[in-house]
């Protein structure tokens, strides 16, 4: 059950090279948004079982933040993108 992450910059690497930050789904509210929105963004997290988007930091390699699309039950990895590209596509939507 080796967790191999294919970094878009470095190639296939073991999970030991990465640090996991957490869910990549929450979107940062605007500075003028209500406190409730900020509270939800900072503290409220789902605890899903199955496919999730997560921020992973490739600390032992290119030192870039990545967004890993994986299943936390089967450890299957569906896709890895650089966090900058992820935000760009998200902004374009």
């Amino acid at each position: 059950m080796a967790s191999l992450i294919t970094c878009p910059h470095c190639g296939t690497r073991p999970k030991e090279e990465f640090t996991i930050r957490g869910d990549a789904a929450p979107r940062r509210p605007g500075s003028a948004d209500r406190d409730e929105a900020w509270y939800a963004y900072v503290y409220i997290r789902d605890n899903p079982k199955g496919r999730i988007l997560e921020y992973w930091h490739h600390a032992g390699g290119c030192r870039r933040w990545l967004v890993v699309d994986r299943d936390n039950l089967t450890h299957e990895v569906f896709g890895v993108v650089d966090a900058a590209d992820f935000q760009r596509t998200e902004a374009a939507e």
Binding site: C10, G11, E17, A59, G61, C62, R63
Partner: peptide
């Protein structure tokens, strides 16, 4: 060439 962990060191 690439950055990687070698003997637990980046």
């Amino acid at each position: 060439s690439a950055n990687m962990l070698c003997c637990h060191v980046a």
